[in-house]
Lab assay of single mutants.
Amino acid sequence: PAHPYDRLKTTSTDPVSDIDVTRREAYLSSEEFKEKFGMTKEAFYKLPKWKQNKFKMAVQLF
């Protein structure tokens, strides 16, 4: 299930529990994912792991 970005980011005051914290981005809706990352999930997962992590750090999901 998708969760709002505000509850997934590492600085959230009301974090979602029971998620894989190493894959926070996977819980974003497709729309919100595209808004935050500027690309689709499919394109994101084709990137090298280090680049994925760099993007995730930039949007507080790492």
Score class of each variant (00 low, 15 high):
N53H: 06
W50E: 09
D20A: 05
F44W: 04
R23Y: 04
S30N: 14
F62D: 15
E32W: 05
P48C: 03
Y5K: 08
Q60V: 04
E31R: 07
P15G: 07
R24K: 08
Q52I: 01
R23M: 12
L47Y: 03
D18E: 09
K9D: 08
F37L: 10
F55M: 15
L28G: 02
G38K: 10
F33R: 00
I19H: 04
T40A: 07
R23E: 04
E42S: 11
E25M: 04
K41G: 02
E35D: 12
K51Q: 13
Q52W: 01
D20V: 04
K49E: 11
T13K: 09
V16G: 03
D6S: 01
V59F: 10
T10Y: 11
F33H: 00
K51T: 11
Q52M: 00
Y5G: 06
T10R: 02
F44P: 00
I19T: 03
K41Q: 07
T11Y: 04
D20R: 04
D14W: 11
E31L: 05
Y27K: 05
E42N: 15
M39C: 09
D18K: 05
N53T: 12
K49S: 09
F37R: 00
S12Q: 04
K36M: 13
Y27L: 04
S17K: 14
V21I: 13
F44E: 00
H3G: 04
V21Q: 12
T10D: 09
K56H: 02
A58H: 12
E31C: 10
K41Y: 08
D6Y: 02
W50P: 02
A26I: 09
F44T: 00
K51H: 08
A26C: 14
E25F: 06
L47W: 03
A2I: 15
E32R: 01
S30M: 14
F33P: 01
F44K: 00
L28P: 04
T40K: 06
D6C: 09
P48R: 00
V21Y: 10
P4Q: 08
S12H: 05
K41E: 09
M39T: 01
G38N: 09
H3I: 15
E31I: 08
E31H: 12
Y45H: 03
I19L: 03
K36C: 13
S12T: 08
R24Q: 03
P1S: 12
S30R: 12
K49T: 11
S29P: 03
Y5V: 06
M57P: 00
A2L: 15
K41D: 01
K51E: 14
A43P: 01
A26T: 10
M39P: 00
H3A: 05
L8N: 05
N53G: 03
Q60N: 13
T10W: 04
A2Y: 15
D18S: 10
L8F: 04
V21T: 11
F55E: 07
M39N: 00
P48Y: 01
D14L: 08
V16W: 03
F55G: 00
E32M: 05
Q52S: 01
A26D: 09
D14V: 02
R7D: 08
H3S: 09
E32K: 02
A2R: 14
K9P: 08
V21M: 07
Y45C: 10
R23L: 10
W50D: 09
A43D: 15
M39A: 00
T40E: 09
A26P: 03
P4N: 09
H3K: 03
A26M: 13
E31T: 14
E25T: 04
P15W: 03
L28I: 03
E31D: 12
F37C: 05
S30H: 13
T10H: 06
K56F: 06
A58Y: 11
P48Q: 01
L8V: 09
L47V: 01
F37V: 02
P4E: 07
F55W: 12
K46T: 10
G38E: 06
Y5N: 07
D6K: 00
L28S: 02
P1V: 13
A26Y: 12
Q52L: 01
P1W: 04
F62P: 14
R24M: 11
T22C: 14
T13D: 10
Q52F: 00
E42R: 06
P48K: 01
K51N: 05
K56E: 02
D6V: 00
P15M: 05
D20E: 08
E31M: 08
P4I: 06
K9R: 09
E42A: 11
V21P: 12
V21C: 12
Q60T: 06
L47D: 00
A43G: 05
A26V: 10
F55R: 08
A2Q: 15
K54T: 06
V21S: 09
L8I: 09
T40R: 01
D14H: 09
A2C: 15
P1C: 14
R24H: 08
K54V: 14
F62N: 15
T13M: 11
R7C: 14
R24T: 12
S12D: 10
R7F: 06
D18M: 07
S29T: 13
E25W: 03
K51S: 05
L28Q: 02
T13Y: 08
A2P: 14
K9F: 07
F44R: 00
V21N: 06
L61E: 05
K54R: 13
D18V: 05
A2K: 14
N53C: 12
K46I: 11
K49C: 14
F62I: 15
T11A: 05
K36Y: 15
A58T: 09
K51I: 14
K9C: 15
M39K: 00
P4C: 14
L28K: 02
D20W: 01
D6W: 09
D14R: 03
S17N: 12
D6H: 01
G38I: 02
F37Q: 00
P15V: 05
L61S: 06
A43N: 11
E42G: 06
G38S: 04
Q52Y: 01
Q60G: 13
E32C: 11
M39V: 03
F62H: 15
E25Y: 04
Y27M: 05
E42M: 10
T11S: 12
K56L: 07
Y45N: 03
W50T: 02
F37G: 00
F55S: 03
I19S: 03
P48A: 05
K34N: 13
K34P: 02
R7L: 07
F55H: 10
T11C: 15
K9A: 05
K46S: 13
S12E: 05
R7E: 07
V59L: 15
F37N: 00
E42P: 04
K54N: 11
P1N: 13
A58R: 09
F44H: 00
P48E: 02
S30L: 10
Y45A: 06
D14Y: 12
L28M: 09
T10M: 08
T22E: 08
K46L: 14
N53R: 10
P1K: 14
